[in-house]
């Protein structure tokens, strides 16, 4: 492509803005959107961000190829588009596959079974007994969680 003398090609901001949005879509799930059940169970907010970022990059790449005399960013656009596609794929695999890699709950105790009693220490290293808790409460919710190791 012949570049017109004196006409400086502008940096293609759409590519970089789009990639920035894709990065936000990728990294924001765990520290932010996963905190709210509405955006956690189905990560629609992150999908939406990926879509916006992808659209911006698509526009950037399109104008870089259509008007190469005015817009730079053909190579950077393709590289950023590929990176974005990779991040999106990784995100989708993470929320549809990796987060489901837990054993089946077949052996878990079911409703109407007697709950095994326990004595476990709390954060102050004081023993806490389920029998005592049930003596003083009308019910008890046990929340088992993976922990933070």
């Amino acid at each position: 492509m012949v570049r017109l003398a004196g006409l400086k090609r502008r940096r293609n901001i759409l590519n970089w803005a789009g990639f920035a949005v894709v990065l936000v879509a990728f990294v924001s799930y765990i520290p932010f959107f996963a905190l709210f059940p509405a955006t956690r169970d189905i990560p629609w907010a992150n999908y939406l961000l990926f879509l916006v970022g992808g659209a911006l990059i698509a526009m950037g790449v399109r104008r870089a190829f259509r008007y190469p005399e005015r817009h730079a960013g053909r190579i950077s656009g393709l590289v950023l588009a590929s990176l974005s596609a990779l991040l999106f794929a990784f995100f989708v695999v993470g929320v549809t596959y990796f987060s489901k890699q837990i054993p089946s709950a077949e052996s878990a105790l079911r409703v109407s079974r007697k709950a095994p009693s326990f004595v476990l220490v709390d954060t102050a290293r004081q023993p806490v007994s389920s029998v005592d808790l049930l003596k003083h409460h009308r019910g008890l919710v046990l929340v088992f969680y993976r922990g933070y190791w």
Binding site: A34, I102, K114, L140, V141
Partner: peptide, 27 residues
Amino acid sequence: IARPAEFLLDAGGTIRWVNLTDDIRVR
């Protein structure tokens, strides 16, 4: 470690309600 799960016990120590997710994100 524990898999995510929630149990509701009544005062008699009987399990009355259970939630067993198949996805660590969904509690």
